[in-house]
Structures are given as C-alpha cells and as structure tokens.
C-alpha cells in the first residue's frame, strides 16, 4: 500500500475527515516521528510500538566489488520495536 492509498483509507474510515485533511494528519504523524528521531527522542505509541535511534559501532567493511577493506564510521540509525499487540497480531 502506498501513502496515497493509506490516506484514502483513513479518509474513508473517518466520516468527518476529507482526503485533504487525512493527508495533513498522515504527514503530521510521520513528520512528528521523523523530527523526534532526528532530535534523539524516543517515540512511544502504546499498543503499537516504539521508534528510537541506535548507534551502529564503527566497523571494517569490504567493498563487495574489489574486496578491499574500508572503514565504516559509527552512525545513528532509526529503529522500530513492535509492541506486544502488534507482535501478537503477527502470530
């Protein structure tokens, strides 16, 4: 499902929400999480899961084409941990 299909689905399931408004809701939702992660904050959504960032340690990688070893610096990456309810749903 794409973002526009997702927006349409949201607009369809809430009677007082137009497509245009649903688009603002979806953008605000994901932008909020984006901003929080960039700021180093954790986002906890009860029953759904939590988003946070993790720091990847520096490592020696390899160029898959040439086989040369290259140093990969440590970096921060986004991480999502599904909540109990969501995990359960996937059983």
């Amino acid at each position: 499902m794409t973002k526009s299909e997702f927006i349409a689905e949201l607009a369809n399931s809430v009677d007082y929400l137009s497509y245009r408004e649903a688009a603002i809701v979806v953008d605000t939702f994901f932008n909020s999480i984006h901003d929080a992660l960039v700021a180093g904050d954790k986002v906890e959504l009860r029953g759904f899961g939590s988003f946070k960032t993790k720091v990847r340690q520096p490592r020696t990688g390899r160029n898959p084409k040439t086989g040369d070893s290259v140093n990969v610096a440590s970096k921060r990456v986004p991480y999502f941990k599904p909540g109990k309810e969501l995990k359960h749903l996937a059983e």
């Binding site: 499902m1 997702f6 689905e9 949201l10 399931s13 809430v14 809701v25 979806v26 939702f29 959504l45 029953g47 759904f48 309810e85 969501l86 749903l89 996937a90």
Partner: peptide, 11 residues
C-alpha cells in the same frame, strides 16, 4: 484509526 489501519494492512 491511523494506527488501526496500519495494523490491518500488515495483518
């Protein structure tokens, strides 16, 4: 509702 839809889609 937004969270419910995400769950439904994945389900």
């Amino acid at each position: 509702q937004l969270l419910v839809i995400i769950k439904d889609v994945l389900n």
